[in-house]
């Protein structure tokens, strides 16, 4: 069991998206254990000013035949990269604009369902195919009847280039019903690419990660389909044992009207007192489609107590 606290402060003006000046944004309580020789369970409860909710709670079947891995429960959908990460593992205080415009904000695509993935063994690289089905109520999706489930497919390839560098590429697709009408659907397609550099001998002092996610949304509305595009590109560099610097550029249409575009850069500085706490500042400059420009400074304190969690890759 572990608890992770996430405290966020925001200064500067923003008339489009309001955020509290100081907020204990979330306390995430984690329970992870082996259920029996065939399965393990992971439960993440999130206590926030909005109340207590199950952020994720799923069973993983680890001993299926045929190289399959199945998950059942409420979980973050395997759409791209940022959508699958918990707030405290992101390299930013906030989430990219494209997640807000296409995937429903910080929560993202996170729903009750079933996920099955398989390793496609080949001598060249790591290749994993994932198929998922969800209730269809998260992010841009909404159900009108029980059959309105959402579907997701993902293909992820990974290869070590050298012992210190690697490339991680994914393609994701999901489709579900939306709130524009009884029979309208939203289809999302995403491509993500991550390049990592971490010299093994200096692994605790230096690392670099460059990542981009491109997303295309096709949203059915009564006037016809709206096609929109959104993306972010980010780079993070660890320049000392405790220090990281990062930059991110956001550009995204709004899913319901591709003529409305939000964009802007962010600059991030992170300090790690130890493996178990983190202090981060972010300067965010956003040009909203409404013609409003906002300049904000965000800061964040993260801390973790309890069991030593593993680091996501």
């Amino acid at each position: 069991m572990a608890v992770i606290g996430n405290f966020i402060g925001t200064t500067g003006e923003n008339t489009i998206e309001s955020a509290p000046s100081l907020e204990m944004h979330e306390a995430e309580v984690t329970f992870q254990a082996v259920v029996d020789p065939y399965a393990r369970a992971d439960v993440f409860l999130s206590a926030s000013p909005d109340g207590l909710e199950i952020e994720e709670g799923f069973l993983t079947l680890t001993s299926l035949p045929g190289g399959l891995l199945a998950k059942v429960g409420k979980m973050k959908e395997q759409f791209g990269k940022a959508n699958t990460m918990h707030a405290h593992t992101l390299p930013w205080v906030d989430v990219p604009i494209v997640m807000k415009n296409f995937l429903g904000g910080e929560e993202g695509l996170n729903d009750s369902g079933v996920s099955v993935s398989k390793l496609l063994l080949n001598p060249l690289f790591f290749l994993e195919a994932t198929g998922e089905v969800y209730e269809g109520t998260s992010g841009p999706f909404q159900t009108h009847e029980r059959n309105d489930v959402s579907w997701l497919g993902r293909l992820r390839g990974y290869r070590d280039i050298t012992e210190s560098t690697n490339l991680d590429v994914g393609f994701s697709f999901t489709r579900g019903h939306n709130d524009a009408g009884l029979d309208t659907t939203t289809r999302l397609f995403g491509v993500d690419a991550t390049f990592r550099y971490r010299p093994l001998r200096r692994a605790i002092y230096r690392r670099f990660m460059g990542r981009t996610e491109l997303m295309w949304s096709r949203r059915g509305q009564d006037i016809g389909d709206v096609s929109a595009f959104g993306m972010y590109a980010s780079a993070d560099y660890q320049f000392a044992r405790r220090w990281f610097a990062g930059v991110r550029f956001d550009h995204s249409d709004r899913a319901y009207d591709a003529n409305l575009v939000d964009q802007g850069p962010s600059f991030i500085l992170t300090y790690w007192p130890s493996e178990f706490s983190q202090i981060r500042g972010q300067y965010r400059h956003t040009k909203y489609a409404e013609g409003v420009t906002s300049n904000e400074a965000l800061f964040q304190f993260l801390f973790s107590i309890g069991a030593h969690g593993a680091h996501v890759f």
């Binding site: 790591f126 990974y158 290869r159 690697n166």
Partner: peptide, 8 residues
Amino acid sequence: EAKPSFIL
């Protein structure tokens, strides 16, 4: 790092 190549 928990690299996917280790999973294989």
